[in-house]
Each structure stands twice: as C-alpha cells, then as structure tokens.
Simulated assay, not measured.
Amino acid sequence: MTTEAPPVPPTPDSRGRRIAIAFGVIVAVIVIYVLSLIAVHLLAKSAPPLPAVDFSKIEADDSVVSVHIEKLDTVANRLTVNVLVYPKDSLYDKNFGVLTTDAAVRLYPENDLGDLQYPVGKAPAQVSTTIEARGDPGNWPFDSYKTDVLAADVFTGSGPSKEKTFARVEITGKLDGWDASATRVHDPEDANPDSLDNVVITLHRSKGPLIFDLGIILVLVALPALALWVAIPMALGRTSFVPPFITWYGAMVFAIVPLRNILPGSPPPGSWIDQAVVLWVLIALVTAMALFVYAWWRNRDRKSPKKT
C-alpha cells in the first residue's frame, strides 16, 4: 500500500516572491488610476460657455434677439432654445422695464412656435422653442450638429402701424457635454457689407465624454478577451475544468447591454458602436461560453444507468 507524500510547504523565498508580486500589482493599479485621473483632468476641458449679450457694442436703434441654447435632441435633430427680445430703446420703458408696444420675433428658418409674442406693458420674458440642428446621430461619439443661418425680424405695434425691423441675433449659454460655437454671417439683404447680424450654431461633443466613451469601449473589449483566455485552455484540456466559472460567463453576457446604455449621449440603437463593438463582444462572449460548455461536456461525470 502506497501513501501520498504530504504537500511541501512553501519556502520563505517563494512566499516573499508572491507578496512582492501582489504588492507590485496593487501599486501598478494605483499608479494607473492616478495617471488616468490626471489625464482626464487635463484633456477633458470643454469649451467655455458662449458669452452673454454685450450691450456696450449695440446702438440704441438696434434690436437684438438673444437665443440661449438649452438642450439638444440628437435623434430628432432638434435644438431647444430660449428666445428673448431686446427692442430698440424707443420701444422700451427703462423706468419700469416693460415694453411700450406689442412685439413679436420671427426666426429664420422657422421654429416650432412660429412668431414669438411679447405683449405690451410687460417685461420681455424668455420663450422656449426648438429649431433644427442637422447631424447624423449614427456617427456617435464623433457626431456634430449645425443649424442653418439664423436670422430674426422684430415686429412692433399692431394694425396699420405695425413695423418690421431687422434684428441682430446673439447666441448665449452652454450645453452639458457639448462644445458650442457661433459663427457670424453677413445678411445678404443688408446693404452694409460689414454687418454680421446672422449666426450659425455648431455643436461638437466635449472631450470629457469622449474619454469616458473610450474607457467603456475598452472595458467592453476586455470582457470577451478575458472570457476566451479562460475558456480556450479549458476546451483544449490544458487546464482544470472549474464549474463555477459558468456564473461568471453569464454575468458578463448580461452586463454588456447596461454598459452600452450608460455611454454618454445615449447613441441610438444600430449605430456604428453596436455594429463594430457591442455585437462582436456579444458574439465573442457567447463563443467563450460555448467553449466552456464543451469543456464541461468532455469532463462531465459519466454514470452508468442503474439496473432495475
């Protein structure tokens, strides 16, 4: 009768080596984490908000329409804005801060509310509406959106005394996660060639969300790589079969969709990120799970049927 030899206890050298490796891994993770924070802080600077209306550069006879950007619906290509009119001084009572006549603003191209009304005897208030900002949301996260040339007319008075005047459009505000820019454009109907009263709004995604998107994509790619790295040796019989790994595979498969849905900007279903990353990650994970099931099938316990 032979007896198995007792396990050899680890030597002090091997134990110290394991402790050094574990300590090195912890230090490496901390260093990578700190460097990533520094990199994100340095690179994720977004553009400053568009400045407020500078009334020192506006003459008393000029009417100004302020367009404050609020929200962008990428799928619908609609930009929500708050519109506020600053009529020329002769139509505004500075003592009480109210309009001395009815006023209406007409934006070009047309907005969803048509003419925006500002009644006489009241202080002008912001009116919320939406305008078109064209772009392709399927190009997420490299999509950008641009409006047509925004122009405005201010109608004052009522009836036969109603007047129409050109207005200077000013863009203000900031969108979270977006870099907004306003380009001044000359109105071809204006005889003054130096007049730049119209404007075009352009929106690009900020660097901060792009860096976060890259991190999520790297996580998505790493999950199937780790799964295949474990499943292939098991399927080839080069390592021991570990049954509890099946729960790990199932958790990874069901984690893909939540990870995809937390991407900043909520890319629409079917965009390139789904075709180039998410779909292939799911295929790789299912392949890894199939290899794991094959390894289980080959190493399963085979029991003879009981004779009755």
Rank of each mutant, 00 (worst) to 15 (best):
L236V: 10
R184W: 01
P233Y: 01
D301Y: 00
F212D: 02
A151H: 03
I216Y: 08
A235Y: 01
A151S: 12
S66Y: 01
N95L: 09
A133N: 12
P141I: 04
E170Q: 11
A47I: 03
F166I: 02
W280N: 11
I256G: 08
A180G: 05
Y92A: 01
R184A: 14
K306S: 12
S46F: 00
V65Q: 00
F55D: 07
W178N: 03
N139A: 14
L113P: 03
Y92E: 00
R18P: 00
W140C: 08
I26N: 00
D61N: 15
G16Q: 13
Y118R: 07
F55T: 11
T165C: 04
I131S: 05
G237P: 01
S304G: 13
V105N: 01
V75M: 14
N198L: 02
A60D: 14
P209R: 05
G157E: 11
G215D: 04
D136P: 13
P258D: 02
D213Q: 06
V257D: 13
S128N: 11
N261W: 13
L285E: 02
P119A: 05
P7W: 09
E132A: 14
K303G: 11
V98L: 05
L282W: 02
R106H: 04
A255L: 15
V34T: 13
V75D: 15
I273P: 03
R17F: 10
S63E: 02
G138K: 10
P6Y: 05
K162P: 09
P193M: 08
P109D: 03
L236W: 09
L37N: 09
P305M: 11
V25Q: 02
V293M: 06
V25D: 02
S144P: 05
S144V: 03
G250E: 01
H41N: 15
R17K: 11
S181T: 12
K94L: 05
A103H: 14
L223Y: 07
L263Y: 05
D176V: 10
V105L: 04
S181L: 00
W140D: 12
F254Q: 10
D194Y: 09
A123D: 09
V200G: 08
A123V: 02
K306R: 11
K207Q: 14
V286P: 01
I58C: 00
E189R: 13
R17Y: 08
A225M: 10
A20H: 12
P119L: 06
R302G: 06
F96S: 09
I19P: 00
A104I: 03
I58D: 01
V278G: 06
A76G: 14
A191W: 00
P137G: 04
T247M: 04
V75Y: 13
R15A: 11
G114N: 11
N111T: 03
Y108A: 10
F241N: 11
F55L: 15
K88H: 12
D197Q: 03
A20V: 15
V257T: 13
V293G: 01
G121I: 00
K164M: 13
P49A: 14
A60E: 13
D89E: 09
V185L: 05
D112Y: 04
R184E: 04
H204M: 14
T202C: 08
G157K: 05
T308D: 15
L218V: 10
A39G: 08
K164C: 07
N111P: 07
A104K: 15
